[in-house]
Amino acid sequence: MNPEAEWIEVDEDRYDKDYEERRDVRSVVIHVSASPYDIPHQVKGEFAPDSHRLVITFRYLADEPTHQVHLAKHAIAAVGKKSGRVYSIEIDVDSLNVEEVKLKLQIDDAISNLAEIKHKRERNYDLARKVVGDYWSSISQMLAKDQPKLHAAI
């Protein structure tokens, strides 16, 4: 992977929307918005030639220690130990026969698996999924530069 690779700036205001959450206790309605610390401010996609993995990496206002979560046979996420933020998602493209697989769907599935495994921060996983979806065109262009063979699956 190239540490100098170009980052895509995320329009954080796009994700700072209030959403309504109902509580069972006295039917109180609480409006909650995402913390600016939980919204990725940058994203990039790369192909790691040494491991043959597609890597989507997110940057936030603050870093923290992460741990790896195995999402499926061919997918791993680096998740913040305290916040539950998704710092990266790695997909083993060789094992999945990349010519036949739509990578965007694999990333969505990986994030969905993360929500099933780690229930306490589903909002953070949803933010990561939305950022990937909204910036997929730019991410896929980055991936195509790194690995032209991936272009067929994007």
Results as ranks from 00 to 15, higher is better:
H31E: 11
F47E: 04
H119S: 10
M142H: 13
V101I: 14
V10D: 09
D63C: 00
I89A: 09
A152Y: 10
Q147P: 07
A75M: 07
V131T: 04
S112H: 04
E12K: 05
Y135H: 11
L103H: 01
S95R: 14
L127C: 07
V55E: 04
A115G: 14
D24M: 08
L127Q: 01
H67K: 12
A128M: 00
K149M: 01
V86I: 15
Q42E: 10
N97Y: 15
D109K: 11
Y135R: 10
A153T: 05
A110E: 05
V25Q: 00
P40L: 06
V10W: 01
E122V: 13
S35T: 09
V132G: 01
V86K: 02
K82D: 14
D94C: 05
I154G: 05
D94S: 14
K102A: 13
L71E: 07
V32M: 08
T66D: 11
H74D: 11
A72I: 02
I8Q: 10
R123Y: 08
I139W: 03
S88Q: 13
I8F: 02
S33I: 06
P65E: 14
P65S: 12
A75R: 03
R53D: 08
G45W: 05
D24C: 02
D18Y: 12
Y37S: 02
V25S: 02
R129S: 15
S88I: 07
R59S: 09
P3N: 05
D50V: 07
V79A: 07
V132C: 12
L114A: 05
T57H: 08
D18C: 08
A75Q: 00
D50F: 00
P36C: 03
V93L: 01
D16G: 06
V132I: 14
H52S: 13
K17Q: 14
W7M: 03
A110I: 07
E9F: 01
S112R: 02
L61E: 13
A78L: 14
L127G: 00
